[in-house]
Design a protein around this nucleic acid. Sequence first.
DNA 1: CGACATTAAATGTATGTACATATATTTGCG
DNA 2: CGCAAATATATGTACATACATTTAATGTCG
Lengths: 149, 149
Amino acid sequence: MRIEDEIKQPAFKDPYQKAHINVMFTAGWLGQRQAATFRSYGITPPQFNILRILRGQHPKPATVNLLIERMLDKTSNASRIVDKLEVKQLVTRTTCPSNRRAVDIRITEAGMTLLQQMDDAAALQIMGLQNLTPEEATQLSALLDKIRD
Amino acid sequence: MRIEDEIKQPAFKDPYQKAHINVMFTAGWLGQRQAATFRSYGITPPQFNILRILRGQHPKPATVNLLIERMLDKTSNASRIVDKLEVKQLVTRTTCPSNRRAVDIRITEAGMTLLQQMDDAAALQIMGLQNLTPEEATQLSALLDKIRD
DNA sequence: CGACATTAAATGTATGTACATATATTTGCG
DNA sequence: CGCAAATATATGTACATACATTTAATGTCG
């Protein structure tokens, strides 16, 4: 749907303002669909994000610092998201033996199993972009990369 | 910068997954810059968004419903964002005379003055997209609209 | 060696997001 | 008319975001 209709704004100052609002709005739109898909599994998108990073490291542990480095939102609070995952027994936290300031975080078997179940759902929800051709998806990424140059 | 480098992920499953992550990441990137720009004025991006809608209505009032309809994030809590603006005396709230369920929300003189000061800053921060040509910005909007078809 | 800066993580506080529920008013219909 | 459904907003709760501050461990340099 045209962004003008989505937020009932008849016109924008210029194509830059329109694209800016469109990026923000579309991210929210995709994020809501993602959250809805994940809800039935009892976890939130940032929790999923961290579990996926931990699976990528498995069986090596990750520190909080490594998580922050790879998260989509670098300023968010990895500690407290790990708290939630720990309560659900999807990850473990142990003091790193070689550096007692750091904490080794590992995904549990339960966490691996949950992720595996969610892979299909995640694949489905990626289909939020199914209206694009593969070429268009590539072109979209190129434009977004260019914004952040 | 390439999204692969931003989140230190060497590759993506397909162009769809890459574009999906890129939209979310870029929105966060833009949002953080916007928040930083607005911080010195003492308001947050959603508060700015609501003030702008109220200026568009001025001197007519807006109801909470109208605000929700035009906000970028429709499920967010307009009531409580208006609370914050009311404390700062940037908006007023009065019971709507013709429908005592509804609330007339108006931007104050102080609110108008603040917005005017911020217009320049907002224009500058739109420049987050200055790396794109106007044609590319238009193309980006078209791709994003297509996602949400 | 010991004071001091640096680093890793956790915690505090304010705000926003998401959804369910509550309260008040208005509308509609038997 | 009177009462139930619908509407407009507000409130409650859980979680996430953003940033500053705190705590503990490590590194550095005189």
